[in-house]
Design a protein around this nucleic acid. Structure first.
Lengths: 335, 335
DNA sequence: TTGTAAGCGTTATCAT
DNA sequence: ATGATAACGCTTACAA
C-alpha cells in the first residue's frame, strides 16, 4: 500500500480513502491511485483489514455431516447468501474430526468468525457454543436447543407431519406405526405431535399408535421397520417415518423381506431429500426447503451481526413444508 | 494480551512465548501466565496473528455444487484433514452465486487463504484461478485442466472403467452403448479410454460402439438413454454410463418406458454415490474414494504450502477405484 | 531466562 | 482536500 502511495505520488491515507471511498479525494488523484493499484497488482491485505476493523467478514457453518443432502443443501443456501455479501463461510464438520468442539468455539472468540450458523443434529450443543450465543452471534437451522432460546430458522414440520399422516389415513389405513426421531430433537417432537394431531382428527387414539424411536439414520429405520412389522398383534399397514433416511431404511427392510411397498405396507418419509424421488417406489414425503432455510439463516445472522435486529433474539416464521404424494403410500390393503 | 501480561506480572513476550512455546520460559512463570489466561478468558486475536505470520491458516475449497454427493464427500475429506491441523476451510460454490470467480481469486491474493482445493466440474478454470496456480497454491481433485500442469489428486478411472466394461462384456453383452461425460473433462476421457480398452480386449472394435456424450447430469442420462435405446439398428443390451448421475437418469428412462433393468437392459454407472446402493435395482458401479481423495488433496496442499514438496509440481498416484457388482447389470438377454 | 521495541498492513483521527 | 501518525494485537529480534 505504501508502494501504491509512492507510485501515485500520494499518501497512504489517500490510497485508503480511494479503496473504501471513506474520504474525499479529487478526481485526478483518485485516477492516479487506481492506475497505480492496477500497475502494481496491489491487493489489500485482508488480515490487516480485519485486525483494524475488528470483523473478519467471515461466518462459520457447523453441520454434523455433509453427506446428508439436507445439510448439504442448507450449506449451499448459506454459502449463496454469504458470498452475495462478500462474506466467507468457514465449514466445520465436528463429526468428521476428533477436534474438540471447544476449539471450534475458540475460532469465534478469536475473531476469525463474526457469527455461526449452527446445526448440531443432536439437539444439544457443547457449553462453549452456548456461551457464544450471548457474545457472538449464532443462528440455528431446523432445530432448537432445549433450555435455550436461540434464534433459529425452522420449517413447519408439525403441519407437514399432520398433513402427511392425514393423507395416509385418508387412504384407509388404520393400523399405523410411527418411526420417530430422537426424543431430544425438537423436529422429532414436532413431527410426532403433528402425526398425533392427525390421528386424533381421524378419531384414532394417538396413544394406541405404536411409536418406535430411531436416530434419524438409515440403519435405525431398517431395524425399527423390522420391529414394527414383526411385532405381535395386527401388522401395521403404514409406517410413518420421521425422516427420509429412516424411511429408506424401512424400504430396504421391506425389500429384503420381500414385502411389497405400497401393496403390503405403505411408507412415508420426511425431508424430501433429492434421492426420495428416485427410489422405487418413489417416496411420499414432506419437503423441507433446505436451501431456503440455509439462506434465511444466513440473512438472519447478518442482521444479528449488523445489530440491525428489531430487538433481543430474533426469529423467523416457520417456513412452509410441502406435502409430496408419491408412490410409496397407497391404499390400505383390505383386511 | 497486555492484560494477561500485567495480571501475570510478566511481559507480553513471555505470554507470547507461552502461547506458542516459541521461547524458553521458567515453569512457575508459565503457570502464572496460563492461570492469567484462564482468569481473563483470553483468546488470541487470530487476525493479528495472521497479519504477523503472513499466513491465515485457512484454505479454500471450491466445489461446483454441494448437493452432488461426490463433491460433498470430497468436502468432508478436506475438512477433516484441515481441521486436524487447525486449518480453517472456507467454502466456495461458484455456481450457487453470481459473484464473479475473479472475486474468489482475490481472496487468495488478499492473504485470507493460504491455498485452494479446486474442483471446477467443467475441466476449465477462469484465468484468475490459473494465475493463482503460480503464486498461490492450488490442488485439483479428480480433474485436470487442459493445458496446465497443476497438482491434482485423481482416482484410477481408466482402470475402473476398463474393469466395469470387461465385467459387462463377460456377462455376454455384445451390443453396448456408452453414455459418456463432457468431452472436455479429463475424467470423461479417461473413463471412455478405459471402456475402449475393454472393448478391444474382448475383440470388439471400439469404434463400433456408439458413444453418446452427456454432461454428467441426470437429465442428460435420461435423454441419452432414450436416444441410445430407440435408435435404428440392434438395441443395446447394456448402457455404460460414465457417472452415477447419468446412470440414474438412464434408470429413470427405463422405468418410465417399462424397460426392465437388468432383464431388458443392463446399466452401469461410475462413482458409487451413496445413493447407488439404494436404487432399485442397485447400481453396478465403480467406487471413487471421494472422501479419501479430498483428504489427500488437503494433505498435498499443505505440503505445497509448507514448501515441503520434493520439487516443482507434485502429484499423487491415482487412487484405486473399486468395481462394485450389483443388480443393475445382469446377463445379456438371449438374442 | 526475560523484557523492550520494532514492525506486520490497514484504518481513522487529527492537523494542515 | 490531503497527509502525518497513532493505534489494532500479535511475533520476534535483540538487549539485558
Amino acid at each position: 500500500m505504501k508502494d501504491v502511495a509512492k507510485h501515485a505520488g500520494v499518501s497512504v491515507s489517500t490510497v485508503s480513502y480511494v479503496l473504501n471511498d471513506s474520504g474525499p479525494v479529487a478526481a485526478p488523484r483518485r485516477a492516479r491511485v487506481l492506475e497505480a493499484i492496477r500497475a502494481l497488482e496491489y491487493t489489500p491485505n485482508e488480515s490487516a483489514r480485519s485486525l483494524k476493523r475488528r470483523s473478519a467478514s467471515t461466518i462459520g457453518l457447523v453441520v454434523p455431516d455433509l453427506s446428508n443432502q439436507f445439510f448439504a443443501l442448507v450449506a449451499e443456501g448459506v454459502e449463496r447468501e454469504a458470498s452475495a455479501r462478500g462474506v466467507l463461510v468457514v465449514l466445520c464438520v465436528p463429526g468428521a474430526t476428533d477436534v474438540p468442539e471447544a476449539q471450534h468455539a475458540a475460532l469465534l472468540r478469536g475473531q476469525r468468525l463474526d457469527g455461526v450458523v449452527y446445526l448440531s443434529g443432536t439437539g444439544t450443543a457443547p457449553r462453549e457454543i452456548l456461551e457464544l450465543a450471548d457474545s457472538g452471534h449464532i443462528v440455528l437451522v431446523d432445530e432448537q436447543i432445549a433450555g435455550f432460546d436461540l434464534p433459529s430458522v425452522v420449517a413447519d414440520g408439525r403441519r407437514g407431519a399432520r398433513e402427511i399422516a392425514a393423507s395416509v389415513l385418508q387412504m384407509g389405513h388404520r393400523q399405523l406405526a410411527v418411526i420417530g426421531g430422537p426424543a431430544a430433537l425438537w423436529t422429532a417432537e414436532q413431527r410426532l405431535a403433528g402425526y398425533r394431531e392427525a390421528f386424533a382428527g381421524a378419531g384414532i387414539d394417538p396413544d394406541e399408535v405404536p411409536v418406535y424411536t430411531g436416530d434419524y439414520r438409515m440403519a435405525s429405520g431398517e431395524r425399527l421397520a423390522e420391529e414394527a412389522l414383526t411385532c405381535a398383534g395386527p401388522r401395521p399397514t403404514a409406517l410413518l417415518c420421521a425422516n427420509d433416511l429412516m424411511a429408506i431404511g424401512a424400504l430396504e427392510y421391506c425389500k429384503r423381506e420381500g414385502l411389497r411397498v405400497p401393496e403390503d405396507v405403505s411408507i412415508a418419509g420426511f425431508d424430501d431429500l433429492p434421492i426420495a424421488a428416485l427410489l422405487t417406489p418413489r417416496l411420499t414425503t414432506v419437503r423441507q426447503p433446505a436451501a431456503e432455510m440455509g439462506a434465511m439463516a444466513a440473512r438472519l445472522l447478518f442482521e444479528l451481526i449488523d445489530g440491525r435486529s428489531s430487538d433481543g433474539d430474533e426469529y423467523s416464521e416457520p417456513l412452509p413444508a410441502e406435502l409430496l404424494l408419491r408412490e410409496s403410500v397407497g391404499p390400505a390393503p383390505r383386511g
